[in-house]
Design a protein around this nucleic acid. Structure first.
Lengths: 344, 344
DNA sequence: GTTTAGCACTCGGAAGAAAAGAGTGCTAAA
DNA sequence: TTTAGCACTCTTTTCTTCCGAGTGCTAAAC
């Protein structure tokens, strides 16, 4: 059933007042605003309550939006404003400043400082990654540098010590071995090949080989892992709903210890909003989450989210977050921190 | 003036009770414990107050240790117990489990989980670091891999794109240029040399060279920076002294935003304890900090610290922290996560 | 001279009562 | 359909009272 225009207007006003004040909204305030009597507003209140859009903390308090109310607000009532010119400038500024070098890990940090809520960022793991190329560089008799390039063009390297002396020839052999049997292979295949090749190799050499392969496998594992970073958890201590130390502690430890369980919705829109009980996780039952995803390039996607009370400033958060995500996408596409600057 | 034996005994008891209960300690409780009358204890209390070792929250409450009282306790009265066999086993376990791969950044995390206080770890920056060697590996016409080994034997690498085509010869030239003019040089010297060399170079080549040198300089900068990581800040929400959201928020944001100002004392002992006002930083005025340093090898030192209320369980924290630091030192000296496993 | 019993005194915190206030629901009139 | 009016509900605040834990001091006891 479609709500009347005035009901929508009232719901919108309740949500916005409550977002601002964190106090239940009474009929008198709205009466003034709408130019009708408080009794009229009360009648509407009563109906909105019956329909499930509003709630009453107790009999004689004002009204508070229910999750369903927030949902309607977000879907229909909220003005989907975009960021102001100054906001945009500010965001661009911080982005340029802090994100050079392609360190995506602190995207959450930027977002958190932008919206004053806890934020998190997820860098999608690249599970199918393989090694494209091995290089070995001689250092001295007992050590060499291993360089591993993965097929997403990331390069990592380490110094490796060996028990036995490695001359140039031997190093070349090892390198050939690595490049023929361990490039373009999945994790499982690498382990398998290690076993196969191992049989025909002198044990000392095998030891070095396996150490190198393990190093490479570790890189693939690390790249395959979904990485979640949370920041700004302490922001919640400023909010009235978390003045209670126990509640604050609960959410806080969740954000730190269970961050892997933060929602990573399959994105169909640019920004997604999960309100209160829409979150599957029990600990997020009365918080809302706003997430946006951005393009890293190579078809990969990153994700940043904001966590806050259901009484969250959805309009501002949504605007800033989506602008942020767009900017990130642009930057990865062509902008300053281009792929050639990516460090390892 | 030296305190009488009984005064010390009483001070010790007050400190330990207060550490456990966070409640002011009354004379009756101690009377029972010491087998004297409460009046006697009260007399001693009064004198300890005058001497500045105890404080009274208000006229008719029990006594609470003053910072000076804690100091005496820590210096003389506390039983400097070492960790129990099970504790040691537990610590070794977590160390082995979590620290393979030489990721020191989360030493604080381990400590925090060990003592249930917020913790931080500082990895000393190596300011005098220089590049020992450059390597360039051809990938395709327009890109190559830059490998940089610093004189502490750390290796880092990145893929670098160029505007102009680079054949093997040209790459060799560039490499020679790098290795002759930019190894074993300080940051300043590198910049200077870049200017000097630049004059005699075609501009396209110079662009590539400077990009590479900048990359190396960035590595040196990063290594030179003192890196502070804090963990477990949310632990404070469990403590009665931080049930007040404002106080909790203050300390919390300090631990997150001002972590660079956490104390890094010049170590003369294995474990150092800073009590309340002994901390220079205003925000730490009523917290205590316990820090231990450990050996990374190569004469480098790392540092881990624990932050908590002055009512901190000094005995346990000190024991665990020093055991932890010792274990770390041992591990870096000869243990599992040996230098050859250090990743970049 | 130290220790202890005794006692009056001081606070802080808990418990209760009362008052204030905000907001409601309902009825009846406009 | 809107609104004025009014009784009612329930929270919050404030004030008071009361209790008890703990003190400081004095005078007696060891």
């Amino acid at each position: 059933m479609e709500l009347s225009g005035r009901k929508k207007q009232i719901l919108k006003a309740v949500v916005e007042h409550y977002i601002e004040s964190a106090e239940p909204v009474g009929s008198k305030l709205l009466a003034q605003e709408l130019g009708v009597s408080s009794a009229t507003v009360r009648n509407e209140f009563a109906e909105l309550c019956e329909l499930g859009y509003l709630e009453q903390p107790h009999t004689s308090a004002g009204r508070v939006p229910s999750p369903q109310g927030y949902r309607l607000y977000v879907n229909e009532l909220m003005e989907r404003r975009s960021v102001s010119a100054e906001e945009a400038e500010g965001i661009d500024e911080t982005l340029r400043e802090k994100l050079m070098g392609g360190a995506i890990s602190n995207a959450g940090q930027l977002v958190s400082s932008l919206v004053h809520y806890p934020a998190y960022s997820v860098t999608a793991g690249n599970a199918g990654l393989t090694v494209e190329r091995f290089e070995l560089l001689s250092v001295d008799a007992e050590s060499f540098i291993t360089v591993v390039m993965t097929d997403d063009k990331n390069v990592k390297s380490q110094l490796q010590h060996t028990a036995l002396a490695f001359d140039a020839e031997r190093l070349g052999d090892l390198k050939n071995l690595l490049n023929t049997h361990f490039t373009r292979k999945t994790r499982a295949e690498m382990s398998e090949n290690l076993m196969n090749v191992g049989d025909q190799l002198p044990p000392e050499l095998f030891l070095v080989l396996s150490k190198t392969v393990e190093y490479a496998a570790g890189i693939l594992d690390a790249a395959g892992r979904r990485d979640v970073v949370t920041t700004g958890a302490s922001e919640i201590l400023k909010m009235p709903e978390y003045r209670d130390a126990d509640r604050a502690h609960e959410l806080m430890t969740f954000l730190v210890d269970n961050k892997e369980q933060l929602p990573v919705p399959e994105g169909d829109g640019p920004v997604q909003i999960l309100i209160g009980p829409e979150n599957v996780d029990h600990a997020l039952r009365d918080t809302s989450v706003v997430v946006a995803s951005y393009d890293i390039g190579d078809g990969m996607r990153g994700l940043v989210g904001v966590v806050g009370p259901t009484r969250m400033d959805y309009a501002t958060v949504t605007a800033r977050l989506s602008y942020f995500a767009e900017s990130l996408t642009k930057m990865f596409g062509k902008g300053l921190p281009s792929p050639e600057d990516q460090q390892t």
